[in-house]
């Protein structure tokens, strides 16, 4: 499964600002706490596909907790034609 967005949970302070700017409204508060004691946000697997990689969440995040990747380009057969980074 492609995951265009990832949260660095150790950095997240649960401020929820990213939730307010996501045009797809797919970022939600999880029930997990990180080691600093902050409740962290997440994008659940079932909605991950809808992420457009717009990076709005990363731009507003005061704690550099969000990584966003562009969706890879695909060839005619639907195979990923872009470079894989990880």
């Amino acid at each position: 499964m492609e995951r265009p967005i990832a949260f660095r949970e150790d950095r997240c302070k649960g401020c929820a600002l990213c939730m307010t700017v996501c045009p797809k409204e797919i970022i939600t508060m999880s029930s997990r706490f990180n080691t600093s004691g902050y409740k962290v946000v997440e994008v659940r697997d079932e909605v991950m596909e809808t992420c457009t990689s717009c990076a709005a969440c990363a731009l507003i995040c005061p704690d550099y907790a969000i990584s966003v990747w562009r969706k890879p380009a695909r060839d005619k057969k639907g195979e990923v034609a872009d470079v894989h980074y990880g």
Partner: peptide
């Protein structure tokens, strides 16, 4: 992770947790 990063942190910014409160826009 696929494709290029749509958001990259500048290299001159130390990649460490900040001491600011949650939601503080100093960050």
């Amino acid at each position: 992770k696929n494709g290029k990063e749509a958001f990259t942190l500048p290299g001159v910014l130390a990649d460490i947790p900040t001491h600011y409160c949650p939601g503080c826009q100093h960050g």
